[in-house]
């Protein structure tokens, strides 16, 4: 346990002594603030599903809502779209966090020493994974900060927050990121090259997003549509973003995380056996 904690601390410190974590955090803060502002200040922008209909009605009848600027239901109308957009942002950002987690140790040969210390592969992989999750947790906490804003403004600008669905969305976001990071670890373990690791995990995440909306196409056979929807990370998080907690979705993400970490360990083991 002491060994594990020491390694975990070193990994966290390693993230924060290099620019990469800061770059990712800054880009994420900027983009999330941007998308939040769009959703917040322009509540009937394209992030609202009801956008076209309501806008049409408003144009026909400006006095429809008593002439006031309409007060949206913040939680229902804005948050799902906001979370959805942010998960696309994660597809681009998380590979930057995971790319060097293991590949760097392989390239520099430091993994040879790790392997000869009294440590198990599980300890090594978990310490690195949890350290990466620490960085990601900072990102998720930022989202909670955004949720506090409508409360502080007491509904003056937007609606009042409904905490349960809003937090379910944060959970969805967190699970999505946890799964994306675990998938990225596989690629970090199979190559010594950080760029290759980043490119491969980006490609996989992009694919898992694209199959989600490709599944909605018209000529897709029913069973393919089901498979695509089941495996698409973005699809799987949709219901959570809307505040619908399904055990199946949570179990799905948990399985992706454990499965990926297991494959990561196997990849390391085979790397070692090959010498």
């Amino acid at each position: 346990m002491r060994a594990f904690l020491a390694l975990f601390k070193r990994e966290v410190a390693h993230y924060f002594t290099s620019p990469i974590a800061y770059v990712v955090l800054v880009i994420f803060s900027f983009l999330s603030a941007w998308f939040y502002a769009i959703g917040f200040l322009f509540p009937f922008s394209e992030y609202s599903e009801q956008y076209p209909m309501i806008q049409m009605q408003m144009r026909q009848n400006p006095m429809m809502m008593g002439g006031n600027y309409p007060v949206p239901n913040f939680t229902e109308l804005i948050l799902p779209g906001f979370y959805g957009t942010l998960s696309i942002v994660l597809i681009f950002l998380l590979p930057l966090l995971t790319m060097r987690a293991i590949s760097e140790e392989k390239r520099q040969g430091t993994i040879e020493l790790l392997y000869t210390y009294p440590l198990t592969d599980l300890q090594v992989v978990l310490a690195k994974y949890l350290a990466c999750m620490v960085v990601f947790t900072v990102m998720a906490l930022l989202l909670i900060l955004y949720l506090l804003i409508p409360d502080i403004l007491k509904g003056e600008l937007g609606g009042v927050i409904q905490w349960k669905p809003a937090l379910s969305g944060v959970l969805g976001f967190y699970l999505f990121g946890a799964a994306a990071i675990a998938l990225g670890f596989i690629f970090s373990a199979i190559t010594e090259n950080q760029i290759v690791a980043a490119a491969l995990s980006f490609t996989l995440l992009l694919f898992l997003w694209v199959v989600g909306w490709a599944a909605q196409g018209e000529n897709i056979p029913e069973h393919w549509r089901k498979v695509a929807e089941a495996v698409s990370l973005t699809n799987r998080s949709q219901d959570l973003y809307k505040g619908l907690l399904h055990l199946s979705d949570i179990v799905f993400f948990a399985c992706v995380v454990t499965g990926s970490l297991f494959v990561t360990m196997r990849a390391l083991e085979s790397h070692r056996w090959r010498g």
Partner: peptide, 30 residues
């Protein structure tokens, strides 16, 4: 593993750490 000390050929070390912190890390791992 508890009873050996190993110095690999390429001397792979965590270059971004200072000497004391690195040795302390290894001591904890061991």
């Amino acid at each position: 593993r508890r009873r050996i000390g190993y110095l690999p050929e390429q001397v792979p070390l965590y270059l971004d750490m200072n000497v004391e912190a690195y040795i302390d890390l290894v001591a904890q791992i061991k």
